[in-house]
Simulated assay, not measured.
Amino acid sequence: MLRRFIPRYYSTIEIMSQIESAKKLAAYKAVDENFPKDAKVVGIGSGSTVIYVAERIGQLPNKDDFKCIPTGFQSRQLIIDNKLHLGSIEQYPDLDIAFDGADEVAPNLDVIKGGGACLFQEKLVASNAKKFIIVADYRKKSQILGSKWTQGIPIEIVPNSYTTIIRELFKLGCKKVELRQGGKAKAGPVITDNNNFLLDADFAEIENPKELHEKIKMLVGVVDTGLFIQMADKAYFGEEDGDVKTWESKK
């Protein structure tokens, strides 16, 4: 039994190390190729790949010349830990560039985000940036949204509207919807940085993400959806073989 167990154990370790290496390669290349030399305000997103984005930005020699805007608690800590200068979207609403991760990315750079529960603030920062860069590993590439990220579209909502919105989502063709729970660490729903609830709505493969986003956004009580439509300019993917692939928007 022991002989059969050990190879599988080390295989798992190697796979995880490979994924982390892919994330780091993509993050470093994204920063190196896109960070403006004269940047004054920079958005820092959230997620496991953005850890390396913040790390790389923290290595820049001119890091005292710009402010970094977080999309939530985790990215705020990344900014502080890498000795970058923290700002807020209220102080600096015009961003030169923003970097963030993704849960799933289609070839036209439509994206599903919000798996880490920072949905609204991520979209606010991205929408105010002159350039929006997605950084991820090879597992996030998809030919059609909803085919790989099967947990459902994250939807941030006003708390007391969840029953009504769930009913309306089924009318729009939703297959399954869940109020995201806090897990073992918290009894009850996840609370976002803006004190809202999150729904995860499974529409299976999404043929028209723009139309679906607009329909959901119109529901009373919806703050925003995790469908980031025609927002990203480039996406960097760390590959299994150590290469970094780039997808570029044609918008």
Rank of each mutant, 00 (worst) to 15 (best):
K24H: 12
L25P: 01
A27R: 02
A27C: 11
Y28C: 11
A30F: 07
V31Q: 06
V31E: 07
E33D: 15
E33N: 15
F35E: 00
D38L: 14
A39G: 09
V41N: 03
V41E: 05
V42N: 02
G43D: 02
G43P: 03
I44V: 14
I44Y: 03
I44M: 10
I44E: 01
G45H: 07
S46P: 08
S48I: 11
T49S: 01
V50I: 10
V50C: 05
I51D: 01
I51E: 02
I51Y: 04
I51P: 00
A54Q: 06
Q59A: 15
L60W: 05
L60S: 07
P61D: 09
K63G: 04
K63C: 06
K63N: 14
D64Y: 13
D65P: 12
F66T: 09
K67W: 12
K67Y: 12
I69G: 01
F73K: 08
Q74G: 03
S75A: 09
S75H: 01
S75T: 03
Q77F: 11
Q77D: 14
L78N: 06
L78H: 00
I79N: 00
I80A: 00
I80R: 05
I80N: 03
I80G: 00
D81Y: 07
D81F: 06
N82R: 11
N82T: 10
K83Y: 14
L84C: 08
H85T: 15
L86A: 11
S88A: 09
S88M: 06
S88Y: 06
I89T: 02
Q91W: 07
P93H: 07
D96G: 13
D96F: 09
D96L: 12
I97G: 05
I97F: 10
A98G: 04
F99M: 13
D100F: 03
D100C: 07
D100E: 13
G101M: 03
E104W: 04
V105W: 03
A106N: 00
